[in-house]
Design a protein around this nucleic acid. Structure first.
Ligand code: MN
Ligand code: MN
Ligand code: MN
Ligand code: MN
Lengths: 226, 226
DNA sequence: ATCTCCTTTTTGATGGCTCAAAACCAGGGT
DNA sequence: ACCCTGGTTTTGAGCCATCAAAAAGGAGAT
């Protein structure tokens, strides 16, 4: 990995990593949709990344990150989350704005500065959304299951989606579903019904749709990081 | 000025601004040397900037910034100095490292973040080197004469060069010539001889060569900013 | 008025980023 | 087995950044 990866290469790695966690193989089409660019653009970037052995490209049937590719992708996510933390902790941005603003300039931050920033921020364990900041040089980030996958009795810590519009933010705020908040599942209604949660001493009901877009750190995972 | 200027365009504007303060017209050759690129590269960038009416290009005889060009150049310098302040105040970098590290990622910082950073840094009046941070949208920065232009009896505030190697930093430190330090010129030896200064209660002698690379904010300029 | 030399611009390449449209192919349907 | 079709890759194009080398121009010297 001689010369630094470009912005598009970084963003593509990130998307493939996220998309490929369960699937394994990821199709270029979904990446084009995800990143909002033309299909041919993805193919071009994929070729460069394959050249660098960060992924395997099976023409017409998808791509898959190599070990080195996963490491690079996780490094991008780490950097993104550190920059978000900077934006929220030092500049006072709300968590829904941090993601948007980190987006572009994170890719031009020298590694050296990233490292100092991490220390200056007091080695934060998670980004403003509640997602973990991985250690440097690892190839995996612990899986965060959706809130909806929990069962009654389960206790977990909330992580909310990165870029969200104001109305969603307001709704989540009203429910007390802020990053890093502890929740306990009280009831789960059948047939994709809503979830009843205890949040901060209050009983809250959230639809299946919402509960699929919120992610959680379960007790076991929580213990692991102590 | 629809779309944002690129890194090379920004750096070129900055160089032309500095070079053209007295000269007026700046030759592409000196810009090529200054930025360490091939002459043809400058011509290419110059053409784009001329297209945007940020400068006038007189083929074969030089370029000159327009009013809009000077405003853009000063904006670049403002941003650079704010980022330097961030690196020194928030991340603890020494002033000779701040310039180097600001260099690349400053050009990708969203305006919005620059503004917040400025506020978070408590609206600093100068960069870590002692150069003033201009207000937004002005087309000029007050001229900082070299220390060597002062006469015995003059009092001024020091600004030190941005990127300097460790030995120079060490020497200046030993002389007490740190950014924002007050000095009084005691003697000026004839025939380009050295300068004798009072710095922090100590008498210091600096060569003409050094005194030409250090810049000062004189009393009048100092009063202006109060 | 010419010539010569040094500087500047132009040209031709390469590589990144991106798009629209054309060519291509894998897998499902017939 | 064959064909369709929709997704994928290629192609052709434009913009930015940059270089080396060729062409062009300015300005002083003859
Ligand atoms: Mn990004
Ligand atoms: Mn985040
Ligand atoms: Mn710069
Ligand atoms: Mn500075």
């Amino acid at each position: 990995m001689r010369v630094a990866l470009s912005k598009s290469e970084n963003e593509l790695l990130k998307s493939i990593y996220r998309q490929g966690r369960d699937n394994g193989r990821v199709h270029t089409g979904v990446l084009a949709d995800l990143l909002g660019v033309a299909p041919g653009t993805i193919t071009a970037v994929v070729k460069r990344l394959a050249e660098r052995n960060l992924l395997d490209h099976n023409p017409y049937r998808g791509v898959e990150l190599t070990q080195a590719g996963r490491r690079a992708a996780v490094a991008v996510m780490r950097r993104h989350r550190i920059v978000e933390r900077f934006l929220s902790d030092m500049l006072g941005y709300a968590w829904n704005e941090a993601d948007r603003l980190a987006g572009s300039f994170e890719h031009h931050l020298p590694q050296e500065v990233e490292d100092r920033l991490y220390v200056a921020l007091d080695r934060p364990a998670s980004c403003p959304h509640g997602f973990p900041i991985p250690p440097p040089d690892v190839a995996e980030i612990p899986e965060m299951p959706p809130l909806y996958s929990l069962e009654p009795g389960d206790v977990a810590t909330i992580a909310v989606p990165g870029s969200t519009d104001a109305s969603v933010v307001e709704f989540l705020g009203a429910m007390g579903l802020r990053p890093s908040v502890r929740v306990e599942v009280k009831e789960k209604h059948p047939f994709d019904g809503p979830l009843v949660l205890e949040v901060d001493g209050h009983m809250r009901t959230v639809s299946e749709k919402v509960a699929r877009q919120i992610f959680v750190k379960t007790e076991e995972l929580f213990e692991e990081r102590i």
